[in-house]
Amino acid sequence: MKGGLTRQEVAKRAAQELRGGMYVNLGMGIPTLVTRCVPAGLTVFLQSEHGILGLGPPPPPGGEDPDFVDASRMPVTVIPGASLFSSAESFAMIRGRHLDMTILGAYQVSARGDLANWMIPERGVGSIGGAMDLVYGARRVVVTMEHVTKDGKPRVVERCSYPLTGRECVDLIVTDLAVIEVGSDGLVLKEVAPGVTPQEVQAETGAKLTVSPELREIRV
């Protein structure tokens, strides 16, 4: 199947979930790109789990400061009105359900919203970072990912075969093909990428999708 969104467009669609005044944590991968997609004029406080509230854009070349990095270890700035704190404080903020939303990458999401994003079993070792705290701590969990693996296997599945990050924690899935809501009765297909049909999305998905009566095309 051709068509589908680019990574940047997936990030742009995820950014449409942001509302003014929200406190949001962005994970590694596609979520990092969301920083550049915050609509102009919208004040959103981006949290970074190693101790920033008020993450800003990357510095101009030559303006890098090794003491200011994001969760992916890339140079960042902080916005006016930002605050800095220690890891325990940061995760008290996360675990204590103070964040409105987190946007995370994933390997797999199940029909009931289980998330697997820290370990590919074949590699024999994985990295968790803050993901396990974020999935239960943030009030809303949005996942961005490619709809299928490099060799064409579905990432949205009936049951995750990879080790879980959290159980029944995902609220919304944004992929290059679709926007899928995790409802109490399973997965609801809300939006499809331009030129992609619901049947095509279902064919690339390992769990049953219910097509929303308000199904529409993704607009980015």
């Binding site: 995760f91 008290a92 701590g137 029944e168």
Partner: peptide, 29 residues
């Protein structure tokens, strides 16, 4: 998990004998 790591260290320094957290529930950890 990173938050559990930070809090376990905090507990170690604060004389807290342990704590209950949701983090990791339902996972191999």
């Amino acid at each position: 998990p990173q938050g559990t790591f930070a809090e376990r260290i905090r507990a170690g320094g604060a004389g807290v004998g342990g704590f209950y957290t949701r983090t990791g529930v339902g996972t191999p950890l």
